[in-house]
Nucleic acid binder design. Structure first.
Lengths: 341, 341
DNA sequence: AGTGATTAGGATAGCGCTACCTCGATGTTG
DNA sequence: CAACATCGAGGTAGCGCTATCCTAATCACT
């Protein structure tokens, strides 16, 4: 069986046409059945499904994306994967989107606006069905890319200033304010704010914290210790020590996240700095370790799972073109008062 | 300007043909230039590149994947994202693969073989250029899928039993053995192994640990406390307490990971159980907290960044069809002796 | 100069799927 | 009962790119 015809480029796997042929229908009908759209005669549909199963047919996503100019993909951009908060949010997002038939692409911008823009560019060429991004602080170009793509987009972690923007988050500044009130309620007057990384949400927390202190007449700018260095337990310990050295009368510290706070707690333990007797310590996020520290860490718990879940649900509705009554979801926060005051 | 012709389906963005037309070459030539292949006349190449830049041309990955039956994608499957170890490995992989022009797809199997198989199926339809998977414990079907796909595949974390299998890892059982010897060297005789999750690597660590104890004649099966529950600090504390209740003479404990060990350390602190005086504690992974615990945790440090980096480099070579001299890379481990003994 | 080997670039033909339009068969109405 | 809407199914024609083949030109070598 000598043949001089052009070598085939086919991949050898069953295609939609194979299924259609086996089911004795046209490829379009098979396509419709397998996408679950339109009203196809139940008997034909059954034949198609059987044929697909018999042939072990698996759709080719590239062909689908090319023909339809969209892909069943949702890109999620977070600023960090080393922060457990985002892992939990991602997990929840995945748990909703995956069963709905979407593929989740994870992008890590490393708290870098340019990197986020680059990721966005990279992902948008895939024509994702949806987009989930973190916060509102991004380059103008990134903003335009999202806008121009027309892709439904949900914003995480913060609440929008503008209406008609999908967002699922909480007021970071209200949470910061709650911490300030909590410390004041417990009789602390010389309270400090210690922060690293200095991403927008961290700054918002500090702002809310400061607002309350000003209102209560006990704000001292010297008690704000800010550094753009990435958060770490080691840094938390160092900042605690240097703050207390310079301001021995400080009686309460709000660390912008639990990593810093935990590092501070352990350093205090090691140095015999009495927490909460000499100084109260409050963190943010309620990471796993918080409840196990000695003393147990008082912190702000944010509903990470709920945030992811609701963001995904909101996006699903938007992608399906369903009317969305609540474009902005405030998931709130909870101050978990433990032993560190 | 009435036109009855069929509505166009084009996406409105510049295509390769647009670039070719602008550069006055054929589309194939443009394709070759932009892929950087073949030897195209430098002058033509220059024209093509200029035209592409002028038009803001961005290749359509779906079209490319459809035509070439492959995508510039590498799928990485890890068993967990809540374990910092895998985040660090992923990060390193990404840092190598991204500049090389590959897109990294992250899959989380949640320590579930069936879930891993499902992910594999999902990712392989995209015809990735490469695959990075964790360990060797997978379903037979998953194994066959990888094999049949012909996709270059690197195995992480463990070392292969078979030659000609790409892997970058370490001997988990040797690491376990090192912990046993370390404890024995410090005079401990009643040493326990406490483990959760019970994934293959955890069990290998226990096996190496046990091997040494048997050799030294101080193995007591009653001092192995295993539970399939997921690891957590809370669980570490509980297991410590219940172990010491049942076996008050235990003078050394190897926790299969740092989460358990840290939880145990904090619980010991809270209960006044003297570490290391009454009982030595050793962990595994050297997570961030280990060095900050009170007392500081002795643990096994594995080179996570190096593992990711070398796995990615190995895969790159394999994908480029370069000859690989060292299909198995042993990155080793290091026992970091701190205060917990 | 003739032969073959090597090259550069282009023509052709899909990759596998779905958007769009058409058509025939059915139901619906005055 | 004819004219008309409705609807299910199919035909056609790409989506944007690259694999494969092909031609013509260049280059050795005998």
């Amino acid at each position: 069986m000598k043949t001089t015809e052009r070598k085939t480029r086919a991949t050898g796997r069953a295609t939609l046409s194979d299924v259609a042929r086996a089911a004795q229908v046209s490829p379009i009908t098979a396509s419709r059945v397998l996408r679950g759209v339109d009203t196809v005669d139940p008997e034909l549909a059954e034949r198609v499904r059987n044929a697909a199963a018999a042939l072990g047919y698996v759709p080719n996503p590239a062909a689908r994306a090319l023909a339809s100019a969209r892909s069943d993909t949702v890109a999620v951009l977070v600023p960090s994967l080393s922060n457990r908060v985002f892992i939990d949010v991602l997990e929840a997002i995945y748990r909703i989107l995956q069963p709905a038939g979407y593929e989740v692409l994870i992008g890590n911008s490393h708290y870098d606006r340019d990197e986020e823009e680059r990721l966005l560019r990279n992902y948008l060429v895939h024509r994702p069905s949806g987009l989930i991004v973190t916060g509102f602080d991004r380059t103008e170009a990134a903003r335009r890319l999202i806008e121009a793509s027309g892709t439904p987009c949900v914003h995480l972690m913060e609440l929008a200033h503008a209406p008609s923007v999908y967002c699922v988050g909480l007021s970071q500044s209200d949470a910061g304010a709650a911490v300030a009130r909590h410390l004041l309620d417990r009789g602390r007057r010389r309270v400090a704010f210690v922060a690293a990384q200095l991403d927008p949400r961290t700054l918002q927390r500090g702002e809310g914290f400061r607002r309350v202190l000003i209102d209560e007449g006990c704000y001292d700018p010297a008690l704000e210790l800010l550094t753009p260095a990435p958060s770490s337990m080691a840094l938390g310990g160092e900042l605690l020590v240097s703050l207390l050295e310079r301001h021995p009368d400080v009686d309460g510290i709000f660390f912008c996240n639990d990593d810093l706070a935990q590092g501070a707690l352990l350093e205090a333990l090691r140095r015999g700095i009495a927490v909460p007797q000499r100084v109260a310590v409050v963190g943010f996020n309620d990471l796993e370790g918080a409840a196990h520290m000695v003393p147990r860490l008082t912190t702000i718990r944010t509903p990470r799972e709920e945030m992811g879940q609701r963001a995904a649900a909101l996006l699903l509705a938007a992608m399906r073109g369903e009317p969305v009554k609540m474009p902005a979801v405030d998931v709130g926060f909870e101050l978990v008062a433990r032993e560190s005051r």
